[in-house]
Amino acid sequence: MSARKILLRNMARDQAGTVSAVKVGGDLGLRIREMGIVPGARIKVQGRAPLYDPVAVKVMGAVVSLRNNEADYIEVEVEDG
């Protein structure tokens, strides 16, 4: 089983992984973190809005939505099935 790191934007629906980095600071970085998207957290893509943006992810038992350009800062380690 090999692990690779991809950006949250590129994850498919229902794909799961572990957050490896959140590469943004400031308000956006804090906001992302306080919603539980921190390195080490398990994250799963729950679905996308009809226009493919924003994306909804499940993290720490809650569903959190963010826009694709915000998801670009989040790097996830996914397992290749």
């Binding site: 308000d27 956006l28 906001r31 919603m35 909804a56 809650a62 569903v63 939505s65 963010l66 915000e70």
Partner: peptide
């Protein structure tokens, strides 16, 4: 502004 928000159950 960021759209990072919770979709409550």
């Amino acid at each position: 502004t960021p759209f990072v928000m919770e979709l409550p159950p």
